[in-house]
Design a protein around this nucleic acid. Structure first.
Lengths: 343, 343
DNA sequence: TATTAGCACTCAAGAGAGTGGAGTGCTAAT
DNA sequence: ATTAGCACTCCACTCTCTTGAGTGCTAATA
């Protein structure tokens, strides 16, 4: 689509703008080492690139800035699968391999490191536990009228919830119930728990315990929290370092969005594997229409996908960030695979 | 210290500035309903207030703004223990009483509501668990080489950590160990757990299990996480609404600090009960030398203190905020008391 | 035919100068 | 004691002017 000449200039302009955040003039491009033509020639090429919609001017006599369409082309066709940023990935590699203590710690730390390496905001979405299975249910009574239900998964994840024991119940009843549940529910995917409770067990339980309705109601409530997908965010402060966001309204809507976990989860939840780049107005959410979002998936077990993402200005270091995310997602997948099989 | 006249004017100026964030002129004060004197008289009084250091000018012919010393006097001597903001407290009261499901949810929600009611940033520090006691230890094996240790407190709090089982161990050994620990440690304050493990049990355990050193080492590691004091923050975006913070450097240092949980915890951890106000430079941490911090404590059980705090500009609605925090801390204390005794 | 030097043109951004207005302090009159 | 009145100060705004970095176009060049 673009001639070689155009491509060279286009890339130079994008790289320059990504670094400086300032409109790029023909002179500064012609002065670059690998470019030998005069500013006038650059201007002609720039005019061509503007013609196809890859560049824009901020005013009639200003330098050029890349358009969103330009970034899109850059990401899709210009970026080369480059040499992976070894030094950077290594930092995280060490984190992941050194001592895998707790999955959550790793992820939290990865998010922080990632945002420091890039100066953007990093978001990591914990895997959705489609494949995670119930290992054990336990109920620890705290007093006559309250108890904690604890739920352990095969991945070592622990969820818990305290609840009040209805008057008419006895601890013994609960224990009986838990025993039955443990026998029958062990190995059931977490995601199917509440459905399971509804279906097959209602009848069976009736044989053992009276007043099934209430007890089921309670248990369902305990297990129903719709699997809180955990979210780890690092470097929210980094938006403040970008000149394009030195604007209170943009900042406000950004930080508002960042306080709304549900929205972020919706934004990042992805079915497809691989890297996805959405640029500026391609984003559905208004608050980040000035941002670019790059997401990569990592796998957890065979079917579960988690997401790593970076959120920064449309003027983002796509090349660096994409290779970094790609490498990192593989690292995490590997680390989790080891983590999984060790168990 | 201040005459009645001075006090009336002083309060009027502070209230005006808190509302407008603009230097206050003599005319606008003299026009207030409850003030009958002329601007010239106000100017004289203003000069007196400036003399004692309660007011400042931004330049020689500007209106007055309160100094930090002025705010200090205002907080210490001018604010009246006012009618409690019933409507506002009621919102939270309902939250707390409606259905106490999970302590953490309540606190999280309180933080959000608090920041919305005030337009400042709210921080709630979970109680330090001096008084919280161990209810039960459980170990759920996940595989041959890994297990999760779960720790339930009498307050329904659950902590967990997964760990690798050393080669030479058998699950049976662990179970024996846990049984012993459960017998002997039940009721021990969480804070003393690891000390207890060190002292008395070493010898006793030796009788039952060989290779005590290693097992103790593992268990200590599991229980050692120095009780992560949980932090709930709401309304970080609200700083952006304050004109005095429309400055990237201030914002950056604020948000940087907000990403540093340890520092916040250190800032809020308090030994004394009651409300504490620190204004501007009274704060030790540079990042909030332009802020005022108001902290109130709530009690959890007999000895444990948690903290609720609000962070806003020095131009803060002290009166409203102080009464609100006071009321809220009582509500939380009450709610927790009920929560505790129910168990 | 592609390149480039040259030139006229545009526009943002910054510097000065001028103005209006909101504020002050001081003094003299009430 | 209070206040009207006045001179004064300084910010904030507007206007104009200048500068410089950029453009597009044209005509000359290789």
């Amino acid at each position: 689509m673009l001639s070689d000449r155009q491509l060279v200039v286009f890339r130079a302009i994008i790289d320059d703008f990504i670094a400086s955040a300032q409109p790029v003039g023909s002179r500064s491009i012609s002065e670059k080492e690998h470019i030998t033509v005069s500013p006038a020639t650059i201007r002609n090429i720039m005019a061509e690139l503007e013609e196809v919609g890859f560049l824009e001017k901020t005013h009639s006599s200003s330098g050029r800035i890349p358009s969103e369409k330009g970034y899109r082309y850059y990401v899709d066709h210009v970026i080369q699968p480059s040499i992976i940023q070894h030094q950077q990935v290594d930092v995280i590699k060490h984190l992941l391999q050194d001592g895998i203590v707790e999955f959550e710690q790793i992820v939290q730390l990865s998010a922080e490191v990632l945002s420091e390496l890039t100066n953007y905001t990093s978001i990591i979405l914990g895997p959705q536990m489609f494949e995670t299975k119930l290992k054990q249910i336990q109920i620890v009574p705290l007093s006559k009228h309250s108890a904690v239900a604890i739920l352990v998964t095969n991945t070592g994840h622990v969820e818990h919830r305290s609840f009040t024991i209805p008057e008419e119940y006895k601890v013994a009843d609960l224990e009986k119930l838990v025993n039955i549940l443990n026998e029958r529910l062990r190995g059931v995917p977490i995601a199917h728990l509440s459905r399971q409770l509804d279906n097959e067990f209602f009848m069976m339980l009736q044989q053992h315990i009276q007043d099934v309705d209430t007890s089921l109601g309670y248990l369902k409530e305990v297990f129903m929290y719709d699997q809180p997908t955990k979210l780890y965010i690092g470097g929210k402060k980094n938006v403040l370092r970008q000149p394009e966001f030195h604007d209170m309204n943009k900042l406000y809507s950004f930080y508002s969005m960042m306080e709304n976990e549900q929205e972020i989860i919706r934004l990042l939840t992805s079915e497809k594997e691989g890297i996805k780049v959405t640029i500026g107005n391609e984003n559905e959410i208004d608050a980040i229409k000035d941002f670019s979002l790059i997401t990569a998936t990592y796998s957890f077990g065979q079917d579960d996908l988690g997401t790593i993402a970076l959120l920064g200005p449309t003027r983002m270091e796509y090349q660096k960030v994409i290779t970094l995310l790609q490498a990192l997602s593989e690292e995490i997948t590997d680390a989790l695979y080891i983590f999984n099989t060790k168990q």
